[in-house]
Design a protein around this nucleic acid. Structure first.
Length: 196
DNA sequence: AACAGGTTCAACCGCTCATGA
DNA sequence: TTCATGAGCGGTTGAACCTGT
């Protein structure tokens, strides 16, 4: 209703990015830095929506991305952070260097959800599901969080974590910090499309 | 070898938030 | 204070890939 489209759809490509598009985007950001996503496509000679460019850069082309499998430590950290923060993927991603919100969101939906269900834990509430209470794998996340933080009880863990408490060796300072450094920090390490 | 069903993940969509005029 | 615009976020989709039969 009166909402202007984010870009001129008639002249924008959609779907998978080509190598050439990736190269153009990387080259442009290398030269001019991130930002001004709306005007970037024109400036970079891309037939793409600015949003699409931003997403492609953040989720795939950024040089500081880790990629590859998540470690057990990352798994646990995601679960704990999700218990505290809920579906704040961007904030969770901010605590996991080299990981993106989209990647974590996908990983949660495909792997961790299932893992928690197998343990008899509701992935939404992080509470024990009744039916699976006797699962040999069950270890209520409440207990996990409480064990990680001596000052937390299952009932109070949420409130506790809003401070700068260091729980279980995990820095849970949740103040919003830029999830990523300046793009110009190491342009030479930009991935080539061959790597992608 | 061929097919069906399941899984993964890149990308899109629509909404809210932040900012500046 | 209000409105317009751009940026960012979370939910969802669908094509590609994998696995079992």
């Amino acid at each position: 209703m009166g909402r202007s489209p984010c870009c001129e759809k008639a002249h924008t490509n959609k779907g998978a990015w080509t190598k050439e598009e990736d190269q153009r985007l990387v080259a442009y950001i290398k030269a001019h830095g991130e930002g001004s996503w709306r005007s970037l496509p024109n400036a970079a000679g891309l037939q793409r929506c600015g949003k699409s460019c931003r997403l492609r850069w953040i989720n795939y082309l950024r040089p500081d991305l880790k990629r590859g499998n998540f470690t057990e430590e990352e798994d646990d950290l995601i679960i704990k952070l999700h218990q505290i923060l809920g579906n704040k993927w961007s904030v969770i991603a901010g605590r996991l260097p080299g990981r993106t919100d989209n990647e974590i969101k996908n990983y949660w939906n495909t792997h961790i959800k299932r893992k928690l269900l197998a343990r008899g834990i509701d992935p939404k509430t992080h509470r024990q599901l009744r039916a699976a209470a006797s699962s040999p794998f069950s270890r209520p996340l409440d207990q996990l969080a409480a064990a990680a933080c001596s000052s937390c009880s299952p009932e109070t863990s949420g409130a506790c974590h809003s401070s700068d408490d260091d729980c279980g060796g995990i820095d849970l300072n949740l103040s919003i910090s830029p999830p990523r450094g300046p793009p110009s920090s190491s342009p030479s390490s930009l991935p080539t499309t061959e790597e992608a």
